[in-house]
């Protein structure tokens, strides 16, 4: 069902462009051309974010945080095994996806931990990555409030995820 969605969307757009007498090749090429400067403009932000996550990981800081926060998290119903995922998720999409597949192999793909990890993974985005990329062009905005609100909201959904996976 979902496999059809994107192809059908493309088909509709292309047919519509022919009806509207928009030149499909010219328009598509023009759009694609804009992608290059675009990716170049967000590259510096990506470098900073990735350097940050690498250092955070390699210095053992992320493990230290995991150990320190585990008791608090388990009080709220988040299992110790998933603390790291909750912490990594706001920083790194690829890192948390790697962690997710690690959880799958360690605990079994259909275990409570694995299902819970899936819901945590799917319930929020990589907050700091989005902050860095979306505001790449603007240094003036103060991002503290939006970032804090997003982190709080994501954290609540993690707690909720661990709860709902017990009953569903």
């Amino acid at each position: 069902m979902f496999a059809y969605f994107i192809p059908v969307l493309f088909l509709v757009v292309l047919i519509y462009s022919v009806i509207k007498k928009v030149k499909p090749y010219d328009a598509f090429t023009l759009g694609a051309k804009k992608a290059v400067p675009f990716a170049v403009s967000i590259f510096p932000c990506l470098v900073s974010i990735f350097v940050l996550t690498e250092l955070f990981e390699i210095s053992g800081l992320s493990d230290a945080f995991t150990t320190a926060l585990s008791p608090v998290f388990s009080f709220l119903g988040i299992p110790d095994e998933l603390t790291k995922l909750v912490l990594i998720k706001p920083f790194s999409g690829s890192g948390s996806l790697a962690l997710l597949s690690e959880i799958f192999t360690t605990y079994g793909v259909d275990s409570y931990l694995a299902r819970c990890a899936c819901v945590i993974y799917g319930s929020s985005e990589t907050v700091f990555y989005i902050a860095a990329v979306y505001f790449a062009g603007n240094k003036k905005r103060n991002l503290t409030v939006p970032i804090i609100i997003s982190l709080i909201a994501s954290f609540f959904s993690c707690v909720f995820a661990c709860f709902i996976c017990k009953i569903m």
Binding site: F28, L30, A32, V40, I42, L46, F50, T53, S59
Partner: peptide, 29 residues
Amino acid sequence: AMLSGGEKALTLSLKLVFIYAVWMGIFEL
């Protein structure tokens, strides 16, 4: 660690170039 961060950023950027190229082409339409 810092260099491997940079490398990962470059790998992702290269990926983003072609993903964005396709989607921005569609958006232009």
